[in-house]
Amino acid sequence: MANTRDIRNRIKGVKNTRQITRAMQMVATSKMKKAQDAAKAGRPYAMLLADIISTIADEFEEVTQSYFLERPVKHRGILVIGTDKGLCGGLNGNLFRAVSQIDNSAKYVAVGKRSSQFLSRTRRDLLADFSIPDKPTFADVRKIVEFMLRSYDEGSIDTIEVVYTSFINTLRQEPETIRLFPLNDLDSMVEKLHSRFQSDSKPASKDNREILIENKDAVLAELASLYLKQEIFQLVLESQASEHSARMVAMKSATDNAGSLIDDLTLQYNRARQAAITQEILEISAASFSQ
């Protein structure tokens, strides 16, 4: 049987661990709240932008701008939004499982250290990796989008897709793939946006509208890139909300496990202590009998 001092040391160690995991759980909880709020705050912008794009695109009989045209797909361009840090349960694992089902011709852009590590480890075609700070701003996302748009314009990628972790609720996050470019089906895009944000305001039917724009192709391109930026910004925020809630749940179960481990160890400690005392009494009485 282990001696009492060893057990006492272990209890102390586990208590320290529990303190740390509990602190991490608290931090993750407050960060999750903030990330969720930020994701919500961006919704009106997304809705308005989608409405404007669909109205403008309706005006044109034929859209010739390359962002709106389907083209043969040689290389899919995929943005993988992972996390920088670990300790968030199966979040990254699930995400990478979704990525590994994609065939090999795809090219990747990574967000977060974990995803760039995964992509280079599995020898996929990684074009670039970016890191995003904890409280992302629109400008942080801009450089990613500009890079992807440039690759799209040059033809090195033929679609722009995002693999991210969608936030269903605090206990459930699931990896999801969304195709953003080309925007060849605007109506379904607007519909999807509405259903994702669960907004009941239907886009107003708009007719006899005059559009005061000279260079329509350029304006459409501008709108499309703005839409892409906004979408990716939203998805980054949502991934962060998922990350923090996954971390919160993982840390909560770590804290609980530490608690039950401490209970077990305390029991064992008491038993060892009792055994030592009994042993001592036995020895004393044996010694006094033999005299």
Binding site: I52, T55, I56, K206, N208, R209, E210, I211, L212, I213, E214, V219, E222
Partner: peptide, 16 residues
């Protein structure tokens, strides 16, 4: 295209 002043009953437009 320059500054535009919008009052109520303006015609519908979209602009940069």
């Amino acid at each position: 295209n320059g500054k535009i002043d919008i009052l109520s009953k303006h015609i519908p437009i979209i602009d940069r």
